[in-house]
Nucleic acid binder design. Structure first.
Length: 483
RNA sequence: GGGCCGUUAGCUCAGCUGGUAGAGCAGCAGACUCUUAAUCUGCGGGUCGCAGGUUCGAUCCCUGCACGGCUCACCA
């Protein structure tokens, strides 16, 4: 282990790099290049990681990488002194160093810093991956994200954009009077969505607790309390499969607005996404996996029934009964799409299955699919005049669900009936049926104004705005099995 | 959970019909005062993911396991 020996030698000589505490960073790499005219021949003090070292004898060039990028450092014995120059030559790729010197342009025209003083700030005792091909192994990139960030700079860009997206969303909502809150992650009831929860235990209370799968029921309590416009952006946890667009812990925003309905939520959704796209990408047009996506409002609006018909499925508008719907399911080979046995399925279940089979994949440009069956929407207000359907929409982009919203059910009696129905589903073996939250129903008894609510998968929005193929590419440390 | 694929030096990858391994970069020693995947000379570096099996002999063929990728299922 050569590097450990070098470290020991440095320590023996009283120049332990791990004893360094601060370094004055007056400039960053890209700034020096951007402001060359004003900085030429001026002194700067920079710091970063040595990414390459081109030693040509009595002079050498270093590529120094900092937060923003890289800048070349030129060093020779005249600039540093013979002893210091010889010392710097013992440093390794990956070491973190501080450089003081003046800005100049090499004969080849590269803006560089001519070193007058160099200090080893931290020793890298393990070598970096190969300088040209970098770190490619996806497993190593996810497990050792720090190495991925050092070697693959586009990763850094993605995560900086992630922050910008989150900031843009907050900015937009704060500006129109929303209040950001924090609600419990640990709870005795995991409800508000159809998903299996993670289970944990409180020692103090000797109690089984769940990690939240949604923030919905707490945020609606805030509406009951009179906040009028409220949101929470944070992690939800769902104990489900892991794939290209699902991670067990993921970032969701849920927002609720009193005196609004799902039409208002559609406008908010399209405006919010367009705002974030403009802020982060400079345009409402975004290229995703080679396809141009236009986020500008208004987005296409289509009912679920019309979507199924449009994309080659059966016409559910003329279906009167569950039995008729089951006939259609048999005729169109939808049995495989259904989660339950066909005889237990309602018209709503079958419509949803037909939508997933025929329409979902086709919804590339941002589209609101409106009016979901009541059976699969237990927290949603029914459509006036049609109790089998609700005022709910989901937003689809590139065939993927981006958000879900509805006119919130605020009738406590009906809400209780819906929970009772969910409990029956649970008894039938559906362990993703909604858990009953009695205190939430109690809050509705106090009175929740008519309210529109929406949830948007923040990771997925970030995927679209950073052209990331997998959700793991927008989560710094995705869930992995231990080795 | 099913299917397909992958796992060889620190990294990126070769390795034929089975005969216990190679390259580039990185590292080490040296040369070089404008290089930028610097160049040139020389040198060192491996539990071939793990465990079994077949075979005179396994990185290679077979089985199981682990981890990962893609995909299907599942997933507001």
């Amino acid at each position: 282990m050569v590097r450990r020996e070098k470290l020991a030698k440095l320590q023996a000589e009283g120049r332990d790099p791990f004893a360094m505490v601060t370094w004055k960073q007056t400039h960053h790499s890209e700034e020096i290049k951007r402001k060359f005219e004003e900085l030429e021949n001026k002194d700067v003090s920079i710091a970063g990681r040595v990414m390459s070292f081109r030693d040509i004898g009595k002079a050498a060039f270093i590529d120094l990488q900092d937060r923003d990028g890289r800048v070349q450092v030129y060093l020779n014995a005249e600039g540093l002194g013979d002893e210091a120059y010889a010392h710097v030559k013992t440093w390794d790729l990956g070491d973190i160093v501080g450089v003081e010197g003046f800005v100049f342009k090499t004969r080849r025209g590269e803006i560089s810093v001519h070193a007058k003083r160099m200090v080893l700030l931290t020793k890298a005792i393990e070598p970096l991956p190969e300088k040209f091909h970098g770190l490619k192994d996806p497993e190593q990139r996810y497990r050792r994200r720090y190495l991925d960030m050092v070697m693959n700079r586009e990763v850094m860009d993605t995560f900086r954009k992630r922050t910008q997206v989150i900031r843009a969303v907050r900015e937009y909502l704060d500006d129109i009077g929303y209040i950001e809150v924090e609600t419990p992650i640990l709870s005795t009831i995991a409800s508000g969505a159809a998903a299996r929860p993670f289970v944990t235990k409180s020692n103090a209370l000797n109690l089984q607790l769940y990690l939240r799968i949604a923030t919905e029921l707490y945020l609606k309590r805030c509406i009951v309390g009179g906040m009028e416009r409220v949101y929470e952006m944070g992690k939800d946890f769902r104990n489900e499969g892991i794939d290209i667009r699902h991670n067990p812990e993921f970032t969701m925003i849920e927002l609720y607005q009193a005196y609004a309905d799902y039409n208002d939520m559609m406008e908010l959704c399209e405006n919010l996404c367009a705002y974030a796209a403009t802020k982060v990408c400079g345009s409402t047009k975004v290229s995703y996996q080679g396809t141009e996506i236009e986020f500008a409002a208004p987005w296409r609006r289509l009912t679920m029934v019309d979507a199924v018909k449009t994309y080659g499925g059966p016409d559910f508008s003329i279906v009167q009964s569950d039995e008729e719907a089951r006939e259609l399911a048999r005729a169109h080979g939808l049995e495989e799409e259904l989660k339950k046995k066909l005889k237990d399925c309602t018209k709503g279940d079958i419509l949803n299955a037909a939508f997933e089979k025929y329409a979902e994949k086709e919804l590339i440009q941002p589209t609101f699919i409106m009016d979901y069956p009541t059976d699969i929407s237990p927290l949603t207000k029914q459509k006036p005049g049609d109790p089998t359907m609700t005022e709910r929409f989901e937003a689809f982009v590139y065939g993927r669900e981006l958000g879900n919203a509805y006119s919130e059910l605020n009738d406590p009696i009906v809400q209780m009936e819906r929970f009772t129905q969910q409990s029956k589903e649970r008894e039938l073996g559906d362990d993703e049926a909604y858990m009953l939250d009695e205190d939430f129903v109690s809050s509705l008894e106090i009175g929740m104004p008519p309210t529109g609510g929406m949830g948007i998968g923040i990771d997925r929005l970030i995927m679209f705005l950073t052209d990331s193929y997998s959700i793991r590419d927008v989560i710094l440390f995705p869930t992995m099995k231990p080795l």
